[in-house]
Design a protein around this nucleic acid. Structure first.
Lengths: 220, 220
DNA sequence: CGAGCGTTTGAACAGCGTCAAAACAAGTGG
DNA sequence: CCACTTGTTTTGACGCTGTTCAAACGCTCG
């Protein structure tokens, strides 16, 4: 069954990147700019568009019934977000920094999916890949030690950036809400990593990972 | 667009139940029985089948690199599990109690999806619904207080059972690994809920939720 | 009835959250 | 260019809460 191969290939990167799926999807997009902290869409709003980050970074987050915020994910240039099967968004999306976003009408995608089997398959795989990412996130939140979560987060970013030199577009507060911790704990983890020479900090938003045998133990 | 209505309808229940999707999926299944703690499939094995619980209960779990176990979900009668887009399982599945499972060949589903658009849509929605559930799980793990997680877990079970009288097929250890806690903390949460009259325990595995204004505060 | 596992409970400890203050960075206006 | 402002990050001290280790209890099933 050759579709399996195609699927495998799309998953190699381990990212939701438009390039992997573009061939079968109509990507005639318009472009919008957002300033820092501007809302791109809100929870419970109707799903009208699908978004792709061109420049900048985006966070997608939920607000708990007790007002706590949980960040579902960060989206960097090339990443798709805001795609839902349901009629309404379950999360909201905000610009972390000033950013440029490509916007595609959802109805265009659905129309394509209803006639083109490859397009339908692409949408399905988009959802499946998002599920895979969410499962990874789940594993991270399952870790009991704060330092383990923070380190897992840094590894994730390094893999996505394909580099051990990482720029963090998001604040400590964003990281904390992604990991289920407080800003103080995140900050202390960074500091203790620096003391242990697991990483070097160049300002708060630039990290250089130093992979050593000691780091490997943390990765566990 | 009438497909939207269909999607909405399928999501009403908020569960992955074969009944919601069966119309368009070929569900000619064979049946297998498993004893307590028997492995149904292992992580990294090829995905050959899709499973539906007939009786008993199943847990799907991952093992962290440091040996910690995280339970991804519990599956009760009517629930589907083991469905993946990828070629290999990322989790393993085990019988919590003696159970009967309906088994469908994956290839049969994929063949159906490649010719029948409704079947393809059904598979996609299956994945989307699983993603929705995983996001809920994420919100629970984001909660910082142990009692909040345990209570959220009980609410989830009550909703799935459609009753405030809940039978727990899984052990405290399973619950702990689902919530990222220890068995002692889970047990203590149960005890303190009982003291606070938030619930009544009839043995360790039977819970009667008592919804009061006090409970509402916990639900937050 | 007894054996064995699962559950509950207790006590001590460690880690994270909370509160508070200081250090730092970036932008603004004089 | 510097002083000032504002927001973010770091650090410190403390208390709570969850983990750990250990022991007692209670089901369940031979």
């Amino acid at each position: 069954m050759q579709s399996t191969e195609m699927i495998e290939r799309c998953f190699e990167r381990g990212k939701i990147r438009s390039e992997s799926f573009a061939p079968s999807l109509p990507m005639s997009a318009s472009f919008k700019c957002y300033v820092r902290d501007e809302e791109i869409y809100g929870a419970h709003e109707c799903v009208e568009f699908v978004y792709r980050v061109i420049s900048g970074a985006v966070r997608v987050c939920a607000h708990d019934s007790d007002g706590r915020r949980l960040i579902e994910g960060f989206y960097m240039p090339g990443d798709l977000f805001g795609f839902e099967v349901q009629a309404r968004h379950r999360f909201s999306a905000e610009a972390i920094s000033e950013c440029e976003i490509a916007v595609v009408r959802r109805s265009a995608l659905e129309r394509a999916a209803s006639t083109d089997r490859d397009a339908a398959m692409a949408l399905w795989m988009l959802t499946a890949e998002k599920l895979r990412q969410t499962n990874e996130h789940l594993l991270v939140l399952g870790k009991k030690r704060a330092a383990d979560r923070v380190y897992a987060f840094l590894l994730e970013l390094a893999e996505r950036a394909n580099s051990d030199v990482i720029h963090l577009p998001m604040s400590r507060s964003d990281i904390a809400d992604y990991l289920g911790l407080t800003i103080e704990t995140v900050s202390r983890s960074f500091s203790s990593f620096e003391r242990a020479a697991v990483l070097a900090l160049d300002g708060a938003r630039h990290v250089i990972l130093k992979r050593t045998s000691r780091s490997q133990r943390l990765a566990a």
